[in-house]
Amino acid sequence: MVDLSIKIKNVEFSNPVLVASGTFGYGNEVNELVDVNRLGGIVTKSITLHPREGNPPPRMVETPSGLLNSIGLANIGVERYISEMLPYYEELDTNVIMNIAGSSLQEYITILERVEGTSNYLSGYEINISCPNVEKGGLEFGVDCDLTLALTKELRKRTDKLLIMKLSPNVTDIASIAKAAELGGVDAISAINTVVGMSINPQTRKQNIFTGLSGLSGPAIRPVGVANVYKIFDAVDIPIIGIGGITSADDVVEYLLAGATAVQVGTANFRDPGIGIQIIKQLFEYCEEHNVPSIRELVGAIRDED
């Protein structure tokens, strides 16, 4: 019998396959198609203090084996999240992790405190630190070790729940950012967020996404994700959740071997909302076929030599 379960901090996951923030809405949109309880967990769409309309269109464009998107954090805001979504999550039999985005240190703190002040069944928080800090001239939290450390410390003080920092690959040294987060007391690192990209229409000479620069995701960035997980695994002792272009169990195993304890499936949900469940089934078959009694054995188990 294959054991797909994993544990991060005190949170048990029936399997290591979660769905990534921004690629699965709030988890209730796909009820008719997917039994979300079979997923290892759901990371919900980034929540900000106030509701956000998001960016004008076009917000998305296809690229080779991937997508560029710039949605602009369209979301319902923390108050509606608390009143409308938290009661729904109470009924679910899977881990729900809330993704939080802020434009200042205080905004992250306020959101987290507001949710911590409710009785809720969230398994934890994932912090989107690829957000511009208005107090530092728009510098993203996630590109600076000191900002990452300060943010982590402040949030850590305010919750005992699972706390995850989601790192951006658009930095010079992702390992040092991961170390800063570890020093600040996070329980896990998720990596990677989207890779900065751009696409221009040669006929019209216009940019294909309203904001110009946008985030690349999908299989196109999988090698970037795997490389970053590999670098982070070398640098920290806390678990890593691998993200970037996962479409199959083989992709999951690739991330685990590079050092991830769990993974998040993202862009593939747009094609197949049930892909996460299919991957879990494939993962089970992989383990049977390769005599892997526990999926945990694969973490960081890349072979250096024959």
Partner: peptide, 26 residues
């Protein structure tokens, strides 16, 4: 993107007095 409301890509601009529905704003 997805056709089912999870990617939030396919927006059009509407008159602001319209009631909000599946997208997160007006």
């Amino acid at each position: 993107g997805c056709g089912i409301g999870i990617c939030q890509s396919c927006v059009i601009e509407r008159k602001n007095d319209s009631p909000k529905e599946h997208s997160y704003g007006k």
